[in-house]
């Protein structure tokens, strides 16, 4: 079984899982905050934030990748500063995770925002009359009620991160063992003569991971729905 995929392909699968997992988990708190702010708060710059969050969805991925390179590259205005404290993103797996997180962010925020909007604010009012301060209302009432949306958003983001190609290859290139994720590897195999078999097997692996994520999300959301709405 292990030699069904070449070592290089296995490496790509493992790297993709790692990159996607980190991209999802690290952006989740920010995603919840952005979704909550967009759904519940009215503030100057609301439209701007909404546009910013959705930008990666409508920009060509190559453009997003190039903008990342400009900002987070070693000479970019944030990258330069990060470089001084020893954090390098360009051409590293961490950079691939950043690119995947940014590309997946709109999907994550949209899913969570929908679930925040579905929470009855009157329940939160009721909690406040019972002595719960704002942060506690969020933790004890809002958060448990939006859990299905958070799970859906996280899994959607994970799947999107697994498939991210354009921004990743622009920002961190296609270095085997470093930044070569599954889509980059499939692309590389297809560029080399005689790589079709390896590419096809990697495609199957990608489909398997995607289906696995889908089933996991179904199962989790049913579990949560039973806990929340169930008798």
């Amino acid at each position: 079984m292990a030699d069904w995929l070449t070592p290089e392909a296995w490496q790509a699968v493992r790297l993709s899982l790692k990159v996607s997992l980190w991209a999802t988990l690290a952006s989740l708190p920010l995603g919840i905050l952005a979704a909550y702010a967009l759904a519940r708060w009215r503030f100057p710059g609301h439209g701007l934030l909404n546009g910013l969050v959705h930008l990666p969805l409508v920009l060509p991925p190559v453009v997003t990748g190039y903008l990342l390179l400009l900002t987070f590259g070693r000479r970019g205005w944030i990258g330069q500063w990060l470089d001084q404290i020893g954090i390098v993103l360009a051409f590293r797996w961490t950079g691939a995770a950043l690119a995947a997180a940014i590309m997946a962010f709109p999907l994550m925020v949209r899913a969570i925002r929908l679930s925040v909007e579905a929470v009855d604010p009157r329940l939160e009012q009721a909690a406040s009359t019972l002595g719960a301060s704002r942060p506690w209302v969020f933790l004890t009432v809002t958060l448990p009620l939006i859990l299905p949306g958070i799970l859906a958003g996280a899994i959607l983001a994970f799947a999107k991160a697994m498939g991210e190609f354009g921004a990743t290859i622009t920002f961190v290139s296609n270095i085997p063992g470093q930044t070569q994720t599954v889509p980059s590897a499939i692309y590389a195999f297809l560029q080399a003569p005689g790589g079709e078999t390896a590419a096809a097997r990697l495609v199957l692996a990608a489909i398997a991971v995607a289906l696995g994520a889908l089933f996991l999300s179904e199962w989790l959301s049913r579990l949560v729905a039973r806990r929340i709405g169930g008798a």
């Binding site: 009855d120 009157r122 329940l123 009012q125 009721a126 909690a127 406040s128 009359t129 019972l130 002595g131 719960a132 301060s133 704002r134 506690w136 209302v137 009432v141 448990p144 009620l145 806990r227 929340i228 709405g229």
Partner: peptide, 20 residues
């Protein structure tokens, strides 16, 4: 005074029990 520091119980027309 914010609602959570008033110590005033409120029974709403629509119960508003926490479903979870």
């Amino acid at each position: 005074l914010p609602p959570h520091r008033r110590g005033i119980g409120y029974v709403f027309q629509d119960a508003r029990l926490f479903p979870h």
